[in-house]
Design a protein around this nucleic acid. Sequence first.
DNA 1: AATCAAAGTTAAGCATACCTAAATTAATAT
DNA 2: ATATTAATTTAGGTATGCTTAACTTTGATT
Lengths: 220, 220
Amino acid sequence: MTSVSKENYLKLIYAHKQRSNESVTTSILAQDLEVSNAATSEMAKKLYSSGLVTYRKYKGLELTQKGTKIALDVVRRHRLWELFLMKVLGLSWAEVHDEAERLEHISSEKLIDKIDEYLEYPILDPHGEPIPNKDGVMPEVPKSIKLSEGKIGTRYELTKVDDRGSDLVMYLNQVGMGLNKRIYIVEKYSFDNSVVIKFDGKELSLSEKVAQHLFIIKTN
Amino acid sequence: MTSVSKENYLKLIYAHKQRSNESVTTSILAQDLEVSNAATSEMAKKLYSSGLVTYRKYKGLELTQKGTKIALDVVRRHRLWELFLMKVLGLSWAEVHDEAERLEHISSEKLIDKIDEYLEYPILDPHGEPIPNKDGVMPEVPKSIKLSEGKIGTRYELTKVDDRGSDLVMYLNQVGMGLNKRIYIVEKYSFDNSVVIKFDGKELSLSEKVAQHLFIIKTN
DNA sequence: AATCAAAGTTAAGCATACCTAAATTAATAT
DNA sequence: ATATTAATTTAGGTATGCTTAACTTTGATT
């Protein structure tokens, strides 16, 4: 009923709306999906007649409520998979996206629920993006800040690890650090901008470089 | 190059050969895949011209070395996913098959390797079937027996849990029992055919009914 | 207001993987 | 050996989601 291709269109229309708050044109979709304008123009008609988008020729498309529901569900599946792959199976930030891109379309609701449960109903994915809940409600989450910008004597939760082109995640795994961990900033040294954090009873010193690639939000 | 559909054909041709040791006909494939004879007949030609099977009209198909390699890889991906879904995410025996049926076609080699590593390079899937290794070699494994048929004072490994229509896996999870666990048979009572096993230092008594649905192989 | 380039749509066609119905081959019975 | 039937293949067609090329609409410029 809702094919892989259609789900990708809906996801993109949703993403675009989030960024620009405008309706998407067929040519923007064509660019993003790397297909011809003809293809997206045709798909626009199909999505329209399935009641998933509003669409008037030469104007753009916008998700209907029905379309939004599906888009949010795809986003949910994508983000849960990303977090799971990174946290449980140790794939890198760079790898999880493409993998999740495929997994999101073929996972049963049951499987997604199990992953959600396994991860203890997380709110943020490894990129720090919020994960819609089962009912398609996007949780309100404070913007993540860099660990290097955290305050001494404050509790945070690790929400995002940007390990583009590095083995940061692997290193963190080794020292028992990982996404969703609750941490406490013990000290910050100005001579090298290193940050000392405490988690699970252990203390760990992180260089400026690393502290710039870990993102956190305040917790109680 | 090798589509989902083609992978399914190859997997089936492989499975058939395992059972009957004969080349498979297009109509058997049609039955198993629930498609028309015309469809399988056409596909036979395509697989042939890709060098994945030998095929002569009105005779059957047989996997070439190239085809066997792919089939074994699909089987590997399928069985690793089944074990992972059951052991890690707690899906039931009944559920894992269909889920793995879809996952097997879209998982990168990297992901499969990570799952393999996570599971510590298992040899058997939850149905007690051997898992081909990365090089497409099927491990030689002794046939599993029912736990109820195990001998007192002997060490075994749990290889298969047949929980068709029951919550056996959930129960086992609760008591810390699971696939690949090493167990030791302490006692068997003839008055109710229950079996007492020991694992992880704990003792556990299992009813005849349960012991008929757990399968084991001898270990050193 | 008329023109024109850019954006968007339509038309015709392709690959994949199916379908039904018709034709062919193989196997079996007389 | 031939006829019959069962198995298999071919022919022609469909849906999906693409393609390129031709055409239309929009809207910015003069």
